[in-house]
Write a protein that binds this DNA or RNA. Structure first.
Length: 638
DNA sequence: GGAGGTCTAAACATTC
DNA sequence: GGAATGTTTAGACCTC
């Protein structure tokens, strides 16, 4: 609804594109503001003919004009403070943000509505708006030269947001096959993005601005308390320049965004807070620098000299991870540049710039649902490469079951992608029975109450945080239906256990590599396989770099790799004898290697004995050799 | 086409 | 009484 209107707005205002071209043509920032496309075009036109003084004058006029519009819209927005809409005047809600808000419209819906070229144009227009806002902000800042600490915050947010949008744009283009990147070029220079103003120029501009007005001085002069950052002044505060939707710019270019839909109430970012700041210290993984207040934190976060600090250092690390990912993908014959845009979401670039693992961002392992689960803008999320092929198939029962048919061990899948499933609204490619069993087996005593099973589902999978009636009913149905689930009266009530023997009985080896399965596999990789949830996840969630070994929560991963190896051994002919990272495939599968390439490499998995429950014909409550309780990632998953 | 598996939905009973 | 839990049935879809 909001998106629709926003899209309408965009489409009806060619000014956006004008603004883009304007900005891209003149990186010195002579763009128009929202709705000021004509001015932007004029500015571009004038840029080649006018003197610097005249150009500056023109820019001032443009900025003033946009400022008037801004204030007008601001006033409009304030007129109805009670409603959420009222709190988010149009100018404050970048269309891109709205579009990517899952509660508004899913990317799939967007794709259904719009053709790829239209989507591309729309994304470009989003960028245009963002660029206009950013340029406008910079211009305003240049004009006013007012030392405002929160201005700088806002600009930094704008910069980061713009980067995200650009990368999101790139991601979408890739997804649509409009852009193909050669392997190893996971992180495309922002400068290369079409019709985009060079962010580095903006960064440079910003540096110049901040050089002229040191932040500390700004803060001191105005006495701004960044920790409260209420930004109710009439000047361009952070809250006014940046979108009202909680948008947490991360220094690595990643951004998480709170959307009003899920958990917005409980996780709403309060002004003056920062997802990377808490308890007086920087929460950046490995940093933990003490900061007196948010202002100091932000300054340390943002003003770090080039080449050092959070931003650059981690970018380098992430770049390496990206290269590693590319190598892994190449090893698995996943061709990132293969022109199958819709069918190869796995090829999405692993952006070194952005794909900092959520778990890394929040090393505490505690739930941060709104930041990740609903974060629409995390461009170039890494998820797809971590998600095994089976994950891509979760369009209905067929593809859901592909995972089992192709012998993707649920434990490994969850180990590798548990962050993804936890945050993305993607249906896990496992049957209810498998999931229930996994939940039970993850517990120390191999038994769970129904409610605990529920909790496991919701804890592990964002997908099961909605439609509770449906899947809970299914869970109960499965518990009752399958003989493998045994209800035991316990001191604490009725608990459910798994009769592994029964479970194995009901799962005869199916993996035959039959043409039918192969065909399904292939079709699963087709355009249709990009089901709504997955696409939504692509756009909505912040994919962690789970495929990267360094990005995986080691404890949880190892624990989960421990648990449930029977999923592998029960249906698959064990691990590669050569101990390689190749996916576990039956000999028949190896005869069709091309079709199963996207099974996740599971080095750790393969390196471990696969005997845990493979040969167990015993009840799960028995095995003592599976003393895995202490490793169970319960805390990590919560 | 049938068997088996899975999912969704629903109704109903029991327990808390 | 209501919610949670547990059982059962039915229909649909899919794979083999």
């Amino acid at each position: 609804m909001m998106v629709e209107s926003a899209s309408e707005t965009i489409r009806s205002t060619p000014s956006a594109q004008n603004g883009v071209s304007s900005l891209s043509n003149q990186p010195d920032g002579g763009g128009g503001g929202p709705g000021g496309g004509r001015d932007g075009a004029a500015g571009a036109e004038a840029n080649g003919e006018m003197s610097p003084v005249e150009l500056l004058h023109l820019q001032q006029q443009q900025a003033l004009q946009v400022a008037r519009q801004f204030l007008l819209q601001q006033a409009t927005g304030l007129s109805s403070p009670s409603s959420n809409e009222g709190k988010q005047p149009a100018v404050q809600v970048p269309v891109s943000v709205a579009m990517m808000s899952p509660q508004m419209i899913t990317p799939q819906q967007m794709q259904q509505i719009l053709s790829p070229p239209q989507l591309q144009a729309l994304l470009q227009q989003q960028q245009a708006i963002m660029l206009q806002q950013l340029a406008f902000g910079i211009l305003s800042f240049l004009l006013s030269r007012q030392p405002l600490g929160n201005k700088q915050l806002a600009f930094q947010q704008q910069l980061l947001q713009m980067q995200q949008l650009q990368q999101q744009h790139l991601l979408n283009l890739q997804r649509q096959g409009l852009v193909s990147l050669p392997p190893g070029q996971g992180s495309v220079p922002l400068q290369s993005l079409p019709q985009a103003v060079c962010p580095s120029d903006l960064q440079q501009l910003w540096k110049e601005v901040t050089a002229a007005q040191p932040v500390e001085d700004s803060i001191k002069q105005e006495g701004l308390d960044l920790t409260t950052n209420t930004s109710n002044s009439t000047s361009f505060s952070a809250a006014k320049v940046s979108p009202p939707i909680s948008h947490h710019p991360l220094p690595n270019g990643q951004s998480t965004m709170h959307t009003p839909r899920r958990d917005s109430s409980s996780h709403e970012e309060t002004p003056g807070s920062h997802p990377l700041y808490g308890h007086g210290e920087c929460k950046w993984p490995g940093c933990e620098t003490l900061c007196e207040d948010l202002g100091q934190f932000v300054w340390g976060l943002m003003a770090a000299p080039p080449g050092c600090g959070h931003l650059c250092g981690d970018l380098g690390t992430l770049a390496k991870e990206s290269e590693r990912l590319q190598a892994m993908m190449a090893h698995l014959h996943m061709r990132p540049s293969e022109p199958k845009p819709f069918s190869q979401p796995l090829n999405l670039v692993s952006s070194a710039t952005l794909s900092k693992s959520t778990s890394d961002t929040f090393p505490d392992g505690l739930p941060h649902p709104p930041t990740s689960a609903t974060a629409p803008i995390t461009p170039l999320r890494q998820g797809p490469s971590v998600i095994s092929s089976s994950t891509l198939h979760n369009v209905g029962p067929i593809r859901r079951r592909n995972s089992e048919k192709f012998c993707t061990p649920i434990s490994s899948e969850l180990a590798q992608n548990h962050e993804f499933y936890k945050n993305a609204d993607v249906r896990p490619p496992f049957t209810y029975a498998s999931l229930i069993r996994q939940a039970i087996l993850e517990t120390p005593d191999r038994q769970l109450t129904l409610n605990e099973i529920y909790n496991w589902f919701t804890r592990m999978f964002a997908y099961f945080r909605r439609n509770t009636a449906t899947w809970k009913n299914a869970v109960r149905h499965n518990l009752s239906l399958h003989k493998c689930f045994v209800r035991v009266e316990n001191v604490k009530g009725a608990v459910w256990t798994v009769d592994e023997h029964e479970y194995q009985k009901r799962r005869p080896p199916k993996m035959t590599g039959s043409p039918t399965l192969v065909k399904n596999m292939i079709s699963g990789l087709g355009y249709g396989a990009l089901n709504a949830s997955y696409q939504a996840a692509l756009a909505e969630s912040s994919f962690p770099l789970l495929n990267s070994p360094t990005m995986i929560n080691t404890s949880s991963a190892s624990a989960m790799l421990h648990v449930g190896h029977d999923d592998v051994s029960s249906t698959v002919e064990q691990v590669n004898s050569n101990g390689s990272n190749s996916p576990r495939l039956s000999p028949q599968q190896y005869s069709h290697p091309v079709h199963v390439k996207e099974e996740p490499a599971e080095a750790e998995d393969d390196s471990r004995p696969v005997s845990l429950m493979a040969t167990t014909n015993q009840n799960v409550t028995i095995p003592d050799d599976r003393d895995l309780e202490e490793e169970l990632p319960v805390e990590d998953l919560s």
